[in-house]
Structures are given as C-alpha cells and as structure tokens.
C-alpha cells in the first residue's frame, strides 16, 4: 500500500492503493472518475487514454505509482464552465460515436493529436494517428470527420487569438 498524490484535472488528489494498481483503476475507483474506460485491458484499444504531463498514454498499461506527482487530464477535465471542448462538440455535431464506449479515449487521443499537428492534420494523418484506438461501431469515418472538423475549428480559433 502506498499513498499516491497527483494532479488530476487541475486538482491535487491523493489516494491509498497497492503498488500494482493500474492508473485507470486509481482514476475510476479511488477518484470515482468513470469516464476513462477499461476496454481490452491489453493496451490495444485505447478506451483508457488519458494525458500525463501533456501527452496521451494508455492508463491500463501504466501503474498509478508511475503517475505519482504527474499532471493527469481525463475526459472529465476537458469541458470548461459547462461548455463542451471543441473536440467533444465536433464528435457530437458529426455523429462521431455510436455506442460511445471508445469515445473518451478517442476524444483524448484527438486532443493530443491536434495539439501535436495543429492545422497540419489531414485525413491520412488522422487515420494513422488512430492506430492505438479501436472503435467497433462507427467504421471510423465520422470519427475522422469529427477530428478534422475540430482541428479546423481550433486552428481557426488560434489564428483569431493571435
């Protein structure tokens, strides 16, 4: 048992857990943030993607102890002041989900992808970047469309802000 402290969605949190506890279980069970999903549990599907120190990672293949002291963002941390994040809004507007199980991981992946590629994203890049995320409903078409729409929207917003 260890006491682990980290920053999750801007708040400092602590919890007791085994050294072997996975980050995804710490997030879901200790913190009650159940938006991060356990899909395949074998690091294939990406339903568990969160950001650690600004980079997307698979929280089912990371120990909570490895994340001690880190800055974690989960799907619950994206929307600000009750307004959907532009990526969430784009998934809604473009029907980028059906059952929704993979969606938290898809959205977290998309946010990371857009941060790294900015306005340079094209369809081929989005599809390549989705390598680590599996969706069994949509056939990916509307997910790709949602991410491109969000990238355009966010790129535009950045230009406007400058």
């Amino acid at each position: 048992m260890a006491k682990i402290t980290m920053t999750v969605n801007g708040r400092q949190v602590s919890g007791q857990c085994d050294d072997r506890t996975l980050l995804v279980h710490f997030i879901r069970e200790n913190l009650g943030l159940t938006g991060t999903h356990v899909g395949c549990d074998t690091s294939q599907c990406g339903a568990c993607v969160v950001h650690m120190d600004g980079r997307s990672i698979k929280s089912c293949s990371t120990l909570a102890a490895q994340a001690a002291g880190a800055d974690i963002t989960t799907i619950e941390g994206l929307a600000a002041n009750g307004e959907l994040h532009p990526v969430q809004a784009a998934f809604k507007a473009n029907h980028g989900l059906q059952c929704g199980f993979c969606t938290p991981g898809m959205v977290m992946t998309a946010v990371d992808m857009i941060r790294r590629h900015g306005g340079q994203l094209d369809e081929a890049t989005v599809r390549a970047e989705l390598e680590g995320n599996i969706c069994r409903c949509t056939g990916y078409h509307n997910i790709v469309k949602s991410i491109l729409a969000a990238a355009a929207e966010m790129g535009g917003a950045r230009v406007a802000a400058e």
Binding site: S43, G46, V49, M52, R55, S56, I57, K58, S61, T62, T109, D112, M113, E129, E131, G132, N133
Partner: peptide, 9 residues
C-alpha cells in the same frame, strides 16, 4: 513503433 500512446511512454 506501436501507436502514439505507446510511443509517449
């Protein structure tokens, strides 16, 4: 190697 999330870790 792997996928973007794996490459981050």
């Amino acid at each position: 190697i792997g996928d973007p999330h794996v490459r981050h870790m």
